[in-house]
Design a protein around this nucleic acid. Structure first.
Lengths: 142, 142
DNA sequence: GTAGATAATCTACCGCTGTTTATCATTGGT
DNA sequence: ACCAATGATAAACAGCGGTAGATTATCTAC
């Protein structure tokens, strides 16, 4: 029979769905949608020079990003300011409140993840997370 | 600052998308859609006693499964036969051709996966795949 | 045998997603 | 000053996904 394991693609897809489902109530407790959270965490690494770049970084279509930014800006979690150097561009940056909320969400998410990985040995957990992160990086760049 | 790694959910989602994209041309070469392949591999482990169960195992809605089964049955890759014990149920089973095609696809997919994991050390690869498979199992059952 | 439940099927519907098109402001080069 | 290109935005569109109700065939319980 050879290997009885699942296909990587199927395993990733199931796990993605399961994690999203597990994280959803946590985010809802913070009044944050999944895509809101994706935007917040992306901006945590620094302001986005243009909305198009932000959309690409978040992995979302740029036209779909706009209502999300509208909502977050209305809540004072981020700000869109015209780039003085090229006023066509809107620089998107977190406010202090946005940074706080992002950190708070991240912490809660990490707790969910910890429980999810609780059955693994410390060694397994470390290499699994490290490899996963590395592969994700490769996929994001290349 | 704590951890700088990605969220697990995001990593899983990106990797799932990347794998599906990488596998797509391979499947297309075999004249098989992604969902066709999911059905074939699920049936490889044994016939499905009902279509509802098959839909759940594949992770697809039962009404959406029907056209897929129609197509695969038309190609003589599987067969729907009324269960003699309960003729409401259709037992779905692979034909010999279906088994062959599934095996052929699986082999090609495994090659794609091997390349995807090529940069990992053997130890990393083994524990990563093992853990991934275990977690996927947990998620499927619970 | 009649009533209620279940399986497969079909159709209609709603929601999410990406794409396309048009519009407007701004920029840079000529 | 003019014109092509770019960024942000909005509206219309098509594709895909699940859900719900109706239909038909079948089973189980009474």
């Amino acid at each position: 029979m050879g290997e009885q394991r699942h296909d990587l693609g199927a395993a990733f897809a199931w796990l993605a769905r399961a994690m999203i489902k597990a994280e959803e109530p946590v985010l809802r407790a913070h009044d944050v949608e999944m895509w809101d959270y994706a935007v917040l965490t992306t901006l945590e690494r620094g302001p986005a020079p243009t909305q198009s770049e932000l959309a690409a970084a978040v992995g979302r279509d740029k036209t779909r990003l706009i209502p999300i930014l509208d909502r977050l800006e209305a809540r004072d979690l981020l700000r869109r300011t015209p780039d003085p150097a090229d006023r066509r561009n809107r620089v998107v940056a977190l406010t202090a409140a946005g940074r706080e909320l992002a950190a708070s969400c991240r912490e809660a998410i990490r707790a969910v993840e910890a429980e999810f990985l609780a059955d693994l040995s410390p060694g397994e957990r470390d290499t699994f997370v490290a490899v996963l992160d590395r592969l994700a990086d490769e996929v994001r760049e290349g």
